[in-house]
Nucleic acid binder design. Structure first.
Length: 624
DNA sequence: ATAGGGTTAG
């Protein structure tokens, strides 16, 4: 046993202790060596047959991932009770593997020495393990046991079952479990909040959270992460601020979610502030935290800082590598992404489907057609991953963005079965960049059929017609969308000036400096035209309805943010903007001209990637 | 002496 060696080293500091003081010290221990030392002292004091201290020690050993030590402690204990068994199942599930937790659960249930069967805690630990394995048989059997054992009213078990059924793809059963749950005790509102979040009913979740008399850290975290994962990033940030005001200290789980929100928002200064918090709270060694931090820096434009952090992490996992690879992809650093991908392969880190999505996207953003094709082939041949719809879409993207629309179509032909929505949507995007109306029409017909409620495709198709000067076609597509009552996600652009975020919408006059901003744009327009810039003019929009015409010539949010950035910063300063949608063709062209006439570097993150405009050229090479 | 909450693609 690991502790045996420690006995001699602590013999000198041997102190007799009571059971309570041991329990206290065990929960206070902050390092694994504290625990091994305490284990030695426990043996000295004759506590080896005391079940309470043994259970606590086992639990704490699992906290530090000392699986082997925890295991041998468990098996050396003559008559473990249910409590100790539960700790084993939980520890195995969160450390070793969900499979071994399930195996241990089965063994313990068969063992007649445990006179009482599993309890509500046991199921709360083992059901999530079955969910993460995705084992239908085990899952259904556990649900049966829950019913027979009379645990249906337990909210923790209910929420675990709901999650299980979602992971098994049985949304109907998830809903059924929820609807059949009887009493909903207000005292366990955290569980209910979690359930609503899993059902994607954020408003009910928030109501439950707000009404709960005692807000646990887990319930704050559930709400914040629920918002962040559903793209409600402002709500996540504002709830995080509320949490700070209520004097509740964030833990690594809170930090991970809030970093994800910062990454989505492009909120660099908040992200940096959170980084400070991480350092002062010593959360650096948490792999979720450090991975989310890398992602935040990469998505907020600081790819160098992201890489610096990446190098400093000793315990990188697959997600960490994936985040860094896709960061390079976003910035159009395809070669760096490829180098890292090969390093990942040789590091022995298991590759995942997301690894291949990340590297394939990196190839497409950098126009690396050959390299992308090689990786796609080796994915199946060398790594045994059958391509799913998203991987195929990546290949279409690689070919399409490089202008090889014919090859892209041939590739689609070769896909067995229905190619799926993501593929046609990708192809449509490529048609926008390369102005191919015929292929676009074909792709859009498939999309209007398979995903008729998605306004994005109508906008894209209408823009493709417009850039081909087919205004009747553009107007027709927009009319169809209008008839179907679809609305477009409003575009907006964020810019941080002196650590304060400013958000602009198209044609926005709400900013206090609006007059100066529009005047600056006017001035820029003149200089850009001298340099050869041509905007869409009113006369070319003669076939478009009045209302739509106004919308189309409205100044886009990107331009407003850039003009504001130019006014508010010293000459020569880099301008960084963040757009929630894909940047439009006109704004892309305009940004190139602005970078030339003002001699400023403009970095723009859109929904897909980073664009770095410098002296009239964009780093994306005009495919995005 | 044990529950709940977290990162990567699009």
């Amino acid at each position: 046993m690991a502790a045996a060696g420690a006995v001699t080293t602590v013999a000198a500091s041997y102190v007799p202790r009571t059971r309570d003081s041991f329990l206290h010290l065990l929960s206070k221990a902050v390092t694994l060596s504290h625990l091994t030392e305490l284990h030695a002292q426990l043996l000295h004091n004759g506590f080896q047959s005391d079940i309470a201290t043994t259970t606590k020690l086992t639990h704490r050993l699992f906290d530090f991932s000392a699986v082997h030590h925890a295991r041998s402690l468990f098996f050396s204990f003559p008559e473990p009770d249910r409590f100790l068994c539960n700790v084993l199942v939980k520890g195995l599930a969160s450390n070793e593997s969900p499979r071994s937790a399930i195996a241990a659960f089965k063994r313990l249930r068969e063992r007649k020495s445990i006179d009482l069967g599993p309890d509500n805690f046991t199921y709360a630990f083992v059901i999530p393990a079955a969910a993460s394995v995705g084992d239908v048989k085990v899952g259904i059997s556990l649900h049966g046991q829950v019913i027979v054992g009379g645990f249906c009213s337990d909210l923790f078990i209910g929420s675990a079952l709901i999650d299980l059924y979602f992971k098994l793809g049985r949304d109907d059963m998830a809903r059924k479990v929820f609807d059949e749950m009887p009493e909903r005790d207000a005292a366990v509102s955290t569980a209910l909040t979690t359930i609503y979040i899993r059902l994607n009913e954020m408003d009910s979740a928030r109501r439950t959270f707000d009404e709960s008399s005692e807000k646990t850290l887990a319930s704050w975290n559930a709400m914040i992460s629920g918002y962040a994962q559903n793209g409600l990033t402002e709500a996540a940030v504002s709830l995080f601020q509320e949490m700070q005001m209520s004097n509740v200290s964030p833990n690594p789980v809170t930090i991970t979610s809030i970093l994800s929100a910062c990454a989505q928002l492009g909120a660099l200064s908040l992200g940096q502030w959170v980084h400070g918090l991480i350092k002062s709270n010593k959360f650096d060694s948490n792999i979720y935290v450090s991975t989310a931090l890398i992602d935040m820096y990469a998505k907020c434009g600081s790819i160098v800082e992201a890489r610096r952090l990446f190098e400093s992490i000793p315990n990188k996992n697959d997600v960490t590598w994936n985040a860094m690879i896709s960061g390079y992809g976003l910035h159009g650093h395809g070669q760096e992404a490829l180098k890292l991908f090969h390093e990942m392969v040789s590091s022995g880190t298991p590759l995942t489907r997301i690894t291949f999505l990340s590297i394939l996207h990196a190839c497409s953003h950098s126009g690396l057609v050959k390299e992308g094709e090689q990786i796609f082939k080796s994915m199946k041949r060398d790594h045994g991953f059958e391509p799913i719809s998203e991987h195929n879409a990546c290949m279409v993207d690689i070919l399409g963005r490089a202008g090889k629309l014919k090859e892209a179509l041939d590739f689609i032909e070769g896909i067995p079965g229905d190619p799926g929505t993501p593929i046609w949507s990708t192809l449509l995007g490529a048609c926008m960049v390369h102005k191919d109306t015929n292929v676009a029409r074909m792709a859009s017909e498939k999309l209007f059929e398979s995903d008729p409620g998605n306004m994005g495709y109508y906008v894209l198709m209408s823009n493709i017609y417009s850039s081909d000067k087919n205004y009747p076609g553009a107007a027709f597509v927009r009319q169809v969308a209008k008839k179907r009552n679809l609305s477009k996600t409003p575009g907006c652009t964020l810019i941080e000036i002196h650590q304060k975020p400013h958000v602009f919408k198209a044609g926005d006059w709400s900013h206090p400096l609006s007059r100066a901003i529009y005047a600056e744009l006017e001035r820029l327009n003149g200089k850009m035209k001298e340099a050869g810039y041509q905007a869409e003019t009113m006369t070319s929009l003669h076939d478009v309805e009045e209302e739509e015409k106004e919308l189309m010539v409205n100044v886009h949010s990107e331009k407003l943010a850039i003009a504001f950035g130019l006014l508010s910063t010293e000459p020569g300063t880099e301008i960084r903007i963040f757009k929630n949608l894909r940047i439009c063709l006109d704004c892309h062209t305009a940004s190139k001209y602005i970078s030339r006439v003002t001699q400023r570097v403009i970095v723009a993150r859109d929904a897909n990637r980073f664009h770095r405009f410098e002296d009239g050229v964009c780093s994306c090479g005009d495919y995005w």
